[in-house]
Write a protein that binds this DNA or RNA. Structure first.
Lengths: 152, 152
DNA sequence: GCGGATCGGTTTTATAATGCAACCAATATC
DNA sequence: GATATTGGTTGCATTATAAAACCGATCCGC
């Protein structure tokens, strides 16, 4: 690879996001963190990821401020990995991915996990709106580029 | 790598989505497609991606039904790559990534591209709601696992 | 409090994915 | 009709990933 091309200087926020969490495992780790997993072994068993890769991913997720490693809750000597605010704000990304996958990647009737409101039990969805509340589709959206057009 | 672990059998829709589009370049190509790019060379210049990798990614995106390659519009002999409905429905994912990146990956005042409603010029955002319209935060959400708990 | 199991990693080694450059056929351009 | 551009493909070098072995520190049974 000769060093995977960095997108961190890109002026497109999507590109920078992908630079931060777009690698193969990071979002899956975040998903499991949303699911309440906190310990190294929990992630490892859940994802079936190699331990060296997991260690590295957890390290960079912590470096980037998406997770924090807190010493230990109950006197235990191990580390726990918790989502930061920055990490928790990836929630819409997770929901968007989930919604798309539900729609296109499952056979009709094939079982899959579902996301619901814990209070009411109602299904959760997400949609794109203007700031005054009008729903919007992709073709109506317009990208305003930044003056210096290095890349969108 | 001994074959990158496939997640396509996973019962978590997010995992399947990441299996389909979670690699390094696919979502960036989709982003450019949203931006109106259609031709091989356009993607190549925009992304700075190696041509062999781009060719391969376009191929698999077409295989997976996210793009289609249409012969040529104006008599020209080249191919054009267009988003399918499946691809267009990745729009919320793009918006979610963009929104997160805007918030956490840019210095205050640093310029970046913006997404607006083409009709009204109003900024676009997205939020997670129950199907009856109540906004919801990550901590209120609950994942209902599928009976056979191979993985969430 | 001793032996074994588990946890949380690190190192080593093998292979797959990526990037780069060179090449090439088919069009477009002049 | 010569040249440049487009849309790739084919090696080759390098990096990222996976699997397995290993290791110290804790946890557990008794």
């Amino acid at each position: 690879m000769v060093a995977r091309k960095s997108l961190s200087g890109n002026y497109c926020p999507s590109a920078r996001s992908l630079d931060a969490i777009g690698d193969w495992w990071s979002l899956l780790i975040v998903r499991d963190a949303f699911d309440g997993l906190t310990r190294f072994g929990e992630f490892q068993r859940s994802l079936g990821i190699a331990k060296n890769i997991l260690a590295q991913r957890l390290r960079t997720l912590v470096e980037r401020g998406i997770l924090t490693s807190v010493p230990a809750p109950n006197g235990g000597a191990h580390q726990e990995y918790h989502l930061t605010d920055m990490g928790r704000d990836l929630f819409p990304v997770m929901v968007a991915l989930r919604q798309w996958g539900e729609r296109y990647l499952f056979e009709p009737g094939e079982p899959h996990s579902k996301l619901v409101d814990g209070d009411t039990g109602r299904p959760i969805r997400l949609d794109v709106r203007t700031d005054d509340g009008n729903a919007i589709t992709a073709d109506k959206a317009l990208i305003l580029k930044v003056p210096v057009p290095d890349e969108d």
